[in-house]
Amino acid sequence: MKAPASLTLTILVLVFAFLYIPISVLVGLSFNAGGMPTAWTGFSLKWYGSLFQNQDILRAAWNTLIVALVSTFFATLLGTLLAIGVEIRRRRGRMIETLIFAPMVIPDIVLAIALLSFFSLTDFRLGLHTVILSHVVFNLAFVCAVVRARLRVFDWSVAEASADLGASMLVTLWRVMLPVLAPAIIAGALLAFTLSVDEFIIAFFTAGSSRASITLPMQIYSMIRFGITPEINVLAVLVMVFSLVTLTLAQRFNRGSLTGP
């Protein structure tokens, strides 16, 4: 397709400026010395220091870590088994496909209120554990999607060869499927972990009202609503850097197939 090179370059420069200027400004201001969060008064790391003194933030970060680790563990286990199970079927069940696809397209707010109603009416006490139960729902769908993408290019005769040589299904799963799928599973787990760390809406609805079960995105949200402070800038940058590092790692493991068409 032929388009003038100057036109394509202009478009790309404008789009990338739009995408990256807001983020860059945030990063820049996180090193601001002054107390005003938006006016530059000189370079300093003091707000990074003060962030690590903030007990509320530290507790929220700890909660987030627990939620993300536990939900990623279950999601990876269930999602991987699901992916293998779906791909070894001969027939594609439309129902099952819809069920697996749904967590990725249902708007967060709908899933959030549905879970809140469900937990309340079944007398579940709300807390971090309900956030974990909820996060596994969409996390397992994403792990499943990443592992399935790998399975589509998988030579199934390798698994058949294992059975042919005398291995039972579980031995084949453990000694052949898992090692071959490991990069995709790790990538899927990292993706799930990132999503869980960043997830706000579902956590907000299912964490309950106790201050003890506030997660980091919930903390950020309430800080933003309260007003702009230099600490938010710092926190925002740290959260962003964290997701980008995790995602780049996932991309590495999966050889680029997360964004690839």
Binding site: I23, L26, D198, I220, A236, V239, S243, L244
Partner: peptide
């Protein structure tokens, strides 16, 4: 990157 962070920017 985090949705809240992008909005906050």
């Amino acid at each position: 990157s985090n949705y809240l962070v992008r909005t906050y920017a």
